[in-house]
Amino acid sequence: MLKMTNLYDVSKCTACRGCQVACKDWNQLPAVIEPFTGNYQTHETTNGDTYTIVKFIEQIDDVKGIQWNFLKFQCMHCFDPECMKVCPTDCIKQTEWGAVIKDYDKCIGCHYCTYACPFEIPQYRKRQDITTKCTLCYERVEEGLTPACARTCPTGALQFGEREELLIQARERVKFLKANGFPNATIYGEKELGGLNKLYVLTDTPDKFDLPVDPKVSGNIGFWQNWVQPYFGWLIPVTLGASALSFVTSRLLANKAPAHTEGGHE
């Protein structure tokens, strides 16, 4: 099935945070007020009741002085989601059109997905002992609607549609930006981690937007999931088997020399 996704064009974003509010509204999430840290950004990162935020990233440019880079940040709906692989209760699923969603009834709040995610997106919601994240509004999309954030965006910075079509549009836009004073303009999400089901048009390199240039699943998580979990545990049945075998053989051998077991031997 065709992938359906958001395209977010930072060059059109005014950081009005309409998407952030629309997300709260649709998902009925209470406000979370974090202390002022000398930055206009509302929250440090996503949290248990805030699935998406607009980041304000300060850039000091020699020519233009202090600049703000804005970035709508949320779950990237990876094609190959690591969060889904580590979840011990199998509560994370991927829809055919590319949304990575969670069944909160099954989540036990173990945090594995938080630390497996290359962006550390899923966040803990204490009152329910679960971790939460953006759902790509899959309930809306499956009813033929647009995600709440994209529906709200007044400037057209956020669009929703078929990924292939949005990619064509994104390439055009990057070409235009490159020719108009943004030589480092780039697409993010096309190839990263094998493809993300969230596309970005950036006016500069990803690191200027607080995004990992080459996101990777941590080696610690890979070692845990690909080596320790599947293979290492087999040592346990081996020792249990050896003990069961010994139970039989030591009794058979003892029967041949009965005096030997009296109170045990050395």
Binding site: W224, V228, F232, G233, L235, I236, T239, S250, T261, G264
Partner: peptide
Amino acid sequence: YWTHDIAMVLGTVMVSMHAYLGSFHPGSG
């Protein structure tokens, strides 16, 4: 995460032999 699992496996390997040796193994009596 992986430390917890490796320590669990090695600990359980030791304990499964140890529990048997400390009970039903005739030599330990």
